[in-house]
């Protein structure tokens, strides 16, 4: 990943040349073995490293100067490589987060464009009664109502609120997340907005690590969120009752206590439990618990 701007070939040549010319103007090159100079003892140690250089330096009679110049040049080259690399790292993230002005007109257009480009899937966390949650919610509903194959849409609500009437099953869930807005498009681009003491901050993110992290956090929350408001759980008795029965099972009260609480006979309560188990595909209550947990039906735990 660290490309070397400085041409290797150029420097190798330069290095060899520098040895040959290190005493430019002080001695006659060309192999006069009787030229004055310090004993070549020190050179032998360097012969293995740069035989040509050592031989020439030995002949030229100033081995230490040549080596010093060599290593100095090598050091400078290495240092420059490091500087280029670190400068690149400082800049590699540039432009991958684009802060957005929270003005509505531009944001609506941007949301629509992003949703229009979605092919694989859209995920969002919104407070649907607030901006830009309402804009995002509307855009996603338009995506879902596309006649030709629409990409998968998943939406987490941060506030208690009914899902839209025409929402497809298992696309809207409730989550215990503090207020914020997030729109993830095809796992590649994200639109984010959050409040702060200094006012709202919004941005469009395209950096892979950051988008990947947002996606991963979203997936985890989605798995743990309750779809109990979804039409899927609607049937005889309605979703509210199903939710209540699941809550009773979750609390571990006896069937008698649960039936009393729900104002029905024990037999009726057990019939509802059997219905929920059938819908989950569970053969026992233990299995029902496992499946309910894995499907994220049970929502966040009540504080103890």
């Amino acid at each position: 990943m660290r490309t070397n701007h400085l041409s290797t070939a150029h420097l190798s040549t330069a290095r060899l040349s520098s040895v040959a010319r290190s005493r430019a103007g002080t001695a006659v090159p060309g192999g006069d073995p009787t030229a004055a100079g310090p004993a070549p003892e020190a050179d032998r140690a360097h012969v293995a490293r740069a035989p040509e250089a050592a031989r020439q330096a030995q002949v030229a009679g100033a081995p230490d100067e040549a080596d010093d110049l060599d290593s100095a040049l090598a050091e400078v080259r290495t240092l420059l490589e490091t500087i280029v690399s670190r400068h690149r790292d400082l800049r590699s993230g540039q432009g991958t987060i684009v802060p957005l002005a929270p003005d509505e007109a531009g944001l609506a257009g941007r949301i629509d464009r992003l949703c229009g480009t979605a092919r694989r899937g859209l995920a969002a966390v919104i407070a649907p009664e607030e901006e830009p949650g309402r804009l995002i919610g509307d855009a996603l509903r338009r995506v879902q109502s596309r006649p030709e194959g629409a990409p998968r849409v998943r939406v987490l609500h941060t506030r208690a609120g009914a899902p839209p009437e025409r929402a497809l099953p298992d696309s809207w869930r409730r989550a215990a997340v503090p207020p914020m807005h997030l729109l993830l498009v095809d796992r590649a681009t994200a639109l984010i907005q959050v409040e702060s003491p200094l006012g709202p901050h919004a941005a469009q993110v395209s950096e892979p690590t950051l988008v990947g992290t947002l996606q991963s956090l979203f997936d985890g929350l989605w798995r743990r969120s309750s779809p109990l408001a979804s039409p899927e759980f609607d049937g005889r008795g309605g979703s509210r009752l199903a939710r209540a029965v699941l809550r009773a099972l979750n609390e571990g009260v006896t069937d008698e206590a649960a039936a009393r609480e729900l104002g029905m006979s024990v037999r009726t309560y057990r019939r509802h439990v059997a219905e929920i188990m059938a819908r989950l595909g569970a053969r026992s209550r233990f299995q029902a618990g496992v499946l309910a947990a894995e499907l994220g039906l049970l929502g966040p735990h009540a504080p103890r």
Binding site: I97, P99, V125, A175, A176, V177, P178, P179, M180, L182, I192, Q193, V194, E195, S196, L198, H201, A202, A203, V205, L210, T213, L214, L217, F218, G220, L221, R224, P300, H301
Partner: peptide, 19 residues
């Protein structure tokens, strides 16, 4: 260091913390 990215990550983590 971007405030919206850090802020949103904070909130999502709080949601995960809750469960």
């Amino acid at each position: 260091r971007d405030p919206s990215m850090v802020g949103v990550t904070c909130q999502l983590l709080k949601g995960t913390w809750n469960t």
